[in-house]
Design a binder for these strands. Structure first.
Length: 486
DNA sequence: GCGATCAGCGCG
DNA sequence: CTTCGTGCTGATCGC
């Protein structure tokens, strides 16, 4: 292989020669590790299939490329493919090679600490249950809770009674055991998936974790991340967030995090042109507080009985729910209220945000007519479920039709930003590195001398990636690790 | 011994 | 029946 690379090096490095292939990112990474550059325009068949939704097969790669070029043109997806997805492949290869540093000693310590806490919880659980069993087995746990202790089963699964979080939460009012199980689960998840799990991925040579960023997996255009997944590092609980402290920049460097603020709702405002939503963003209001004030007007009867804080929480849940096509039933579960009350809230929302209501109706009609929905850059998701005999499937199809253009357009935006940032770093010959993308956030390992220039320029490049009808805002934070950012 | 599936749970 | 998109772990089942 080494000899072959030497032989072809001139061709690989020739900017004028286009490169066709399947999963080119892999090849770029392999070559980069041998210090060989792959230059020239790229055409990845796998990405063309992903973008177009067509599965073309022909005897030789040239005819396949030719056919995909035709479809890309026909679908109006040339910009998306040639200017967004293909350049992004190189950016992702760069990120994978960059990797992210973790404090191995810190994680090993955390592992020992968690072992101790888990042991104590196990003993308490066995004592309460009156026997030793495998706490990780739903089957065995189910027997203990619902047969031996005769606690009321709240919810079913395909195969038996559910023992999930919300059920145990409910049961902890009746008995101390469920609460202990919940605590055990939190710690066990942290130790197995994050502490021990992450340690097993630390590369011996670089001392870093090098995950894979998958470009052709999701139905919406988002990236996914695996081996390990670094897009779901805990943050919501105090114990969980301690995992973040293990991620740190390389020597003397500093982490910079750039975060799109409320990007989903800004995109909804852009797509729907809703008057109230747009106005809130133009006035740089806290969107959930503003929504609360709009759906609970101060003089209305039904706004009494809730504190301002509760109103904001309700508004926040509705705001997220809207993007997912949430039903009154779903909202009621989330807010612990009756479906009737939830329905009143949703009606009130749509009465005020008429543009959003109209947009949702329009996008569903469009999806039914075309068989697909699109993002700002023309990314498509075909929704065959809309034609299903099954009502549930059709309802699912409608929710997808609402959600995909929002989630997918946000993905378009951050992808364009990543490309522009990469190009900028190259031009300026910056040494700092992009290490993670977490859907609406970019994390950089930054050299001190590049701090100022990066802070200003990355922020601008992100905010200006795709122009919306409302302002786009990026929040910048910095710190010594992935936990302590401000 | 190994892959597939299920339940559960971490993130945006 | 009822909120979108992911990936990983551990238990279990069937080959």
């Amino acid at each position: 292989i080494k000899e072959n690379i030497d032989k072809f090096q001139n061709i690989l490095a020739d900017e004028k020669i286009e490169k066709y292939g399947f999963n080119l990112k892999e090849k770029i990474v392999q070559l980069k590790m041998k210090n060989v550059e792959l230059k020239g325009n790229l055409f990845d068949i796998a990405i063309a299939r992903y973008v177009t939704g067509h599965n073309i097969f022909k005897k030789d790669i040239f005819s396949m490329v030719e056919e995909y070029r035709r479809i890309l043109k026909e679908n109006n997806q040339e910009y998306l493919f040639y200017k967004v997805e293909m350049p992004l492949t190189e950016v992702l290869a760069w990120m994978e090679i960059n990797g992210i540093r973790v404090d191995v000693e810190y994680l090993k310590n955390l592992s020992r600490q968690l072992s101790g806490e888990i042991k104590i919880l196990e003993d308490k659980i066995y004592k309460e249950a009156g026997e030793v069993f495998n706490i990780n087995s739903h089957q065995q746990l189910s027997k203990i809770l619902f047969e031996k202790m005769k606690l009321p089963p709240v919810k079913k699964t395909k195969t038996g009674f559910s023992t999930e979080n919300s059920v145990l939460e409910e049961l902890s009012k009746l008995h101390p055991l469920p609460k202990l199980i919940l605590q055990y689960r939190e710690l066990h998840k942290l130790k197995s998936t994050y502490v021990d799990g992450l340690l097993s991925y630390v590369n011996k040579e670089t001392g870093k974790i090098h995950p894979t960023f998958n470009q052709i997996i999701t139905a919406t255009g988002r990236l996914s991340c695996s081996n390990p997944n670094l897009q779901n590092i805990p943050i919501r609980t105090e114990k969980g967030s301690m995992i973040r402290k293990a991620f740190c920049p390389s020597d003397n460097n500093i982490f910079y995090s750039f975060d799109y603020s409320q990007i989903d709702l800004r995109i909804l405002a852009h797509l729907s042109e809703d008057e109230k939503l747009m106005e809130a963003f133009f006035n740089d209001k806290d969107i959930h507080t503003e929504t609360a004030q709009i759906i609970f007007p101060p003089d209305s009867l039904f706004s009494s009985g809730y504190t301002d804080k509760e109103k904001r929480r309700i508004a926040k849940t509705i705001n997220f729910g809207i993007i997912y096509g949430m039903s009154p039933y779903g909202l009621s579960k989330e807010l612990n209220i009756t479906p009737e009350e939830a329905k009143v809230f949703i009606n009130s929302y749509f009465e005020k945000f008429k543009g959003v209501k109209k947009y949702i109706e329009k996008i569903i009609k469009e999806a039914e007519k075309n068989g697909y929905v699109s993002t700002i850059l023309g990314r498509r998701r075909y929704i065959p479920e809309l034609k299903s005999e099954d009502k549930n499937q059709r309802e699912f199809g409608k929710r997808v039709a609402i959600n995909m253009p929002v989630q997918g357009s946000a993905a378009d935006m951050i992808k364009v930003a990543m490309n522009n940032i990469y190009e900028y770093f190259r031009k300026r010959k910056l040494k700092s590195k992009l290490v993670l993308q977490i859907h609406d956030e970019l994390l950089f390992d930054v050299y001190p001398e590049e701090e100022e220039e990066i802070r200003e320029n990355v922020k601008k490049l992100m905010e200006n990636a795709i122009k919306l009808k409302v302002p786009v805002k990026v929040e910048v934070k910095k710190g010594p690790n992935y936990l302590e950012l401000e």
